[in-house]
Amino acid sequence: MRKLASTAVAGAVLLTVLPGAVGTSELAVDVSHMRSAKGMVRVCLTADPDNFPACVDDARATTRSIPATMTSIHFDGLPHGNYAVAVIHDENNNHKLDTFAGIPREGFGFSRNPSVTFGPPRFAAARFTLSSDADRQQVRMRYLL
């Protein structure tokens, strides 16, 4: 019985050091330059370039909403890899980014704060890599109207 227990412990230790074992990270997303404390902040975290920034068809995307009075949101247990974050300030709390003639009327922001000209940035411009125990992304909100 004792030999069986020590074999099980050795096997468990071996599994934690095997190459290819997927590590996990914690991510903090801090939001700054909010225009007001009205409504909600909607955050989308995705590893899928095809579903950035909307995360609509991404079953593995993580979306969260926090009151606009809060400035930070945390994600735990994320597998190491490449991600991008999109944030909207849903001031009227209607669960979408309001636009006028295609121009956002509410605030928006992205991980790594890439330049925004016509339309949202590509995944590659907002991409960051989680490869350690913890990471932090600072997202600066932008308002065009």
Rank of each mutant, 00 (worst) to 15 (best):
F108A: 00
T99W: 08
L78E: 11
L144F: 12
F52K: 01
G20V: 06
R127H: 05
R136W: 00
R140P: 05
N94T: 06
L145F: 15
D133M: 06
A8E: 12
K3E: 15
T62P: 00
V22A: 12
T7N: 11
P120S: 08
A126N: 11
F100M: 11
H74S: 13
Q137M: 13
V56G: 03
E106L: 09
H95F: 02
R127M: 07
A126H: 02
T62G: 03
S132A: 09
S6Q: 09
S25I: 13
H33D: 14
A59S: 14
R127Y: 01
F108I: 04
R122P: 12
S36Q: 07
S6M: 12
E91N: 02
V13W: 03
K3N: 15
R42N: 12
K38V: 00
R2D: 14
N51C: 07
D90Y: 12
L14N: 13
A10N: 04
E26S: 10
G81E: 14
L145Q: 08
D133L: 13
P67F: 07
A21P: 09
A10W: 00
I88A: 03
P67R: 10
S32Q: 09
P53F: 01
D76C: 00
T71S: 13
K96W: 07
H33G: 00
S6P: 00
A84I: 05
R142H: 12
R105H: 04
G23Q: 13
M141T: 10
I66K: 07
P121L: 03
A37E: 11
D90C: 12
Q137G: 13
R35W: 05
T46P: 01
S115G: 14
G11D: 08
G39D: 01
S6K: 05
I103R: 05
A61T: 09
M34V: 01
A12V: 11
D98A: 10
V29L: 06
T117Y: 03
E26G: 08
K3D: 15
A101R: 10
P104A: 10
D48V: 00
N92C: 04
A101G: 10
H89Q: 03
F110D: 03
D133T: 07
D76Y: 14
H95S: 15
H33R: 12
